[in-house]
Design a protein around this nucleic acid. Sequence first.
DNA 1: TATATGATTGCCT
DNA 2: GGCAATCATATAG
Length: 219
Amino acid sequence: MLSPLQQDFFARPTLLVARELLGKLLVRHLQDGQRLVGRIVETEAYGVDDPGAHGWRDGRGVLPIGRSAGLFAPPGRGYVYFTYGTHWMLNVTTDAEDVPGGVLIRGIEPLKGLDFMYSQRPKARRERDLTNGPGKIAAAFAVIGPEFFGKDLTRPPLYFSDDPSDQEPFEIETSSRIGLSKGIEAHWRFFIKDNPFVSPGLPSDIAHARKKQRGSHRL
DNA sequence: TATATGATTGCCT
DNA sequence: GGCAATCATATAG
């Protein structure tokens, strides 16, 4: 039995939790008793005095209004939302209650329940395509609805755990977060170096710099 | 009420 | 590389 990480793990500064979630396991119990397990290889931190976080209002920080109120939940709860009209994103809340913080799970190495994950991700041809992106992870782990918004993620059917196996030591790298237009200066993305299950996107600071450069060619 | 955009993915040229 | 999908949320009028 994998024992869930408890609330005290998440009740710490968001950046620390995001970093320490690398190498931990995400565990999902399905209704039929089947279990899905994956190893977290990429995360992003949100909500620490953060223009890139949901609910940010210039000069006023993140406000607990609507969807973003979920970031103010007690630590270890689900913050799940729908975006681009197609995809669900899985986050876990961090830091003290009433402090906005959450960690987005962006990259996972699937360990158990691969057949089920392939059935959830019919477009996936290679193993890495199952879970190398936040929307893919939500689909593969059957988190495709608001069911886990605000839910306690320190117990089944969805929780995090230490890896009981002997894990290779790994190096942690950081970058600007992916897919943002605001808050691109902060390097709040964490990932395991050279791991094939890290998502393929470009960090936002690099993406914006390239765009700028392309624009100047037209002059 | 109306429009723009998004913590993305996958298809198309 | 470009761009459509498709809807919740934010912001403007």
